[in-house]
Design a protein around this nucleic acid. Structure first.
Length: 382
RNA sequence: GGGAAGAUACCAAAGUGGCCAACUGGGGCAGACUGUAAAUCUGCUGACUUAUGUCUUCGUAGGUUCGAAUCCUGCUCUUCCCA
């Protein structure tokens, strides 16, 4: 089985006025049209959304899972027994797993960081577990994601230069160990997996450059930009993307981890990013925030109480025109689970529409002007 | 008819002389949420207004007191028990 396959990503189109690109990423579970947004399914489910809705209504082409969470529950034994996450959650498209690097950041008060790896206390029962670059690769083999991520430290956006530098050193040594171990092991379920390195370096251009150059030497099928949208100013995020994308190979997909708002996504596409994931459409949806073609709605606000217009007349999912705003507000106010489901489907549908439309605009060389109009629209708070 | 308990802000419910514009929960209103410890979290919720000020409130009408949601009296209403 080839370790490296240069046919994995076809860069179909680039534009003059923008760094935006349209591409096609091939995986053993299907092709992905980029730019793409990947719904987050931490525990093997995109919260509140059926696979059928994800695929047919929302148009998702790839979803995420999380190594830390799936390792704790249901555990690798179950995942191996069933033949990997695809067979467990019955998503037959591509899957990407995050390595647990983000949990090094988000669970910082119940973990200990060391050269060897990270010792976590389970947030479920307090039990202690060690994650190392090596065992994280193995766990991701067990999960069986098509794209797996290197184990990194996602340092806070407010880190000092000294901390960021130290952290990056660790991430880079871990990357080497990840790659070494990944290349030494084989997939468990008969299809190929690929490992994406993660570029860290906080908001410091020289660190980001160093990190991107280091990552690029490993010649992988794709690269991720991590450690952004974690507390730093938005402008810093954009300039880091610019710095890193200057260095990452043109013919490989770039994945901006954990980002972001619809506007963030458009700005990042403009700067040459191809892949995105974020909990925002689902989490914020559950909490009553809707991203629509006309602007952002807080459906809990009183003004929607008797607004019987449909959720989004230009929306692409069935919920958009099936349900009215007042009803959705009622469901969310009443904490009815259907409300969370409708909001999640709507928001994911919007995100997927956004990247699909971006791709269409890139292909016909009108991305830049379309983006400006969209950003104005997306800034509206209804 | 007799007896007992009770009446507190939108609802429920603490508070039995000053630290009470009044605990707490719900509801309501608003905000937050970016590789998901999140169907979660935060703030506000008498009025005027925003100073750590004034005014009006704890069924109702009086009274005691420097001071009352808290003590006393009448009235009204509610619930329960006995006839």
């Amino acid at each position: 089985m080839p370790r490296y396959n240069d046919m994995k990503f076809d860069l179909l189109h680039t534009t003059e006025r923008s760094k935006a690109r349209a591409g096609l990423l091939h995986t053993c579970h299907g092709d992905i049209e980029t730019p793409i947004f990947m719904p987050v399914g931490t525990l093997g489910s995109v919260k509140g959304v059926h696979m059928r809705e994800l695929k047919q209504d929302i148009g998702a082409q790839i979803i995420l899972g999380n190594t830390y969470h799936l390792y704790l529950r249901p555990g690798t034994q179950i995942l191996e027994q069933v033949g990997g996450l695809h067979h467990f959650n019955s998503w037959d498209g591509p899957i990407l797993t995050d390595s647990g690097g983000f949990q090094v950041f988000s669970l910082s008060d119940i973990r200990k960081l060391a050269e060897e790896g990270v010792t976590f206390q389970s947030h479920i029962d307090g039990s202690r577990h060690q994650f190392t670059p090596e065992n994280v690769m193995e766990t991701q083999r067990s999960i069986g994601a098509d794209i797996i991520m290197a184990f990194d430290e996602c340092a806070p956006g407010t880190s000092t230069y000294e901390y960021a530098q130290k952290s990056l050193g660790l991430t880079q040594r871990w990357l080497e160990r990840c790659i070494h171990h990944f290349d030494e092991t084989k997939p468990l379920y008969g299809y190929e997996q690929t490992l994406f390195p993660i570029v860290q370096g906080c908001v410091y251009p020289d660190l980001r450059i160093k990190a991107a150059e280091h990552a690029a030497t490993f010649n992988r099928d794709g690269y991720a930009i991590g450690g952004l949208a974690v507390g730093e100013p938005e402008q810093d995020m954009y300039s880091m993307i610019e710095v890193v994308n200057e260095i990452l190979p043109q013919n490989k997909p770039r994945y901006l981890m954990g980002v972001g708002t619809p506007i963030n996504i458009l700005e990042a596409i403009d700067r040459g990013v191809d892949m995105f994931d974020c909990v925002m459409p689902t989490r914020n949806g559950r909490n009553g925030m809707l991203f629509t073609s006309k602007g952002v709605i807080n459906i809990r606000n009183q003004k929607w109480t008797s607004d019987f217009s449909v959720i989004d007349e230009n929306g692409t999912t069935f919920v958009d025109t099936q349900y009215n705003k007042a009803y959705l507000r009622h469901l969310i106010q009443s904490k009815e689970m259907l409300g969370a489901q409708i909001a999640s489907i709507h928001n994911l549908g919007f995100y997927l529409w956004l990247v699909k439309e971006a791709r269409r605009q890139i292909l016909k060389d009108t991305f830049k002007s379309w983006k400006e109009i969209m950003i104005k629209q997306l800034s509206v708070r209804l």
